[in-house]
């Protein structure tokens, strides 16, 4: 059990997909214009990650090596489609603001990467913990980036206004601000981790 806990913590800290592995940059940069968007994107990815890790780990002996990548993609795409349909049905506003990036979870290299590098080689339980850990790390990173960008850009945090919007640095809501904020967050994360 301690091993599984360590896998979980590794996913958040030592192997954090955004700050350390620098994977899944496309949704990280594109969907974090506000904290709530970043968090929802993270949670959606986490759901897909956990489900696909579980299924792939339990089917790993059944899937022949030669077709494992197509099989993984089919499994991942299934869960992504489920997320998309459910979101469209019950959270239409959120689905609108995340737009194309929900379907694009299919090609998020974190999901396929964990399937190939972890779930296909480990037990179902460890894969579950790995999925939760990495997913949590991704969600935390995206939320943090979203909070920073929303606060700097419009003076809000989770839609609560802290200072008048006129004083916000709009650049942080736009694409270049995503790169700048991410760069500094990665630097800070590395500095803290080295201590």
């Amino acid at each position: 059990m301690t091993k599984n806990i360590r896998i979980l913590i590794n996913g958040v800290v030592k192997d954090n997909p955004v700050f350390v592995l620098l994977l899944g940059m496309c949704p990280t940069l594109a969907t974090t214009s506000s904290a709530i968007n970043g968090m929802s994107m993270g949670l959606a990815t986490m759901f897909v990650l956990v489900c696909s890790n579980l299924v792939i780990a339990s089917l790993k002996n059944f899937i022949p090596d030669l077709v494992r990548i197509p099989a993984f993609i089919v499994i991942i795409a299934t869960f992504v489609t489920i997320v998309e349909m459910v979101m469209n049905a019950y959270l239409p506003a959120l689905a609108d603001s995340l737009g194309i990036f929900i379907p694009l979870i299919v090609v998020n290299c974190i999901v396929l990467g964990r399937a190939e590098a972890f779930a296909a080689k480990n037990t179902v339980l460890s894969s579950l913990f790995d999925g939760v850990g990495i997913g949590l790390g991704f969600t935390l990173a995206l939320t943090l980036l979203g909070v920073v960008r929303e606060f700097m850009g419009s003076g809000r945090m989770f839609s609560v206004s802290f200072f008048p919007e006129d004083f916000g640095v709009t650049l942080f809501i736009l694409a270049p601000g995503a790169f700048i904020a991410l760069g500094y967050l990665v630097a800070i994360f590395n500095k803290l981790q080295r201590k």
Partner: peptide, 10 residues
């Protein structure tokens, strides 16, 4: 067969 099975399930 296994790929077919996964696709069907999906």
């Amino acid at each position: 067969l296994s790929l077919l099975f996964i696709c069907l399930l999906a």
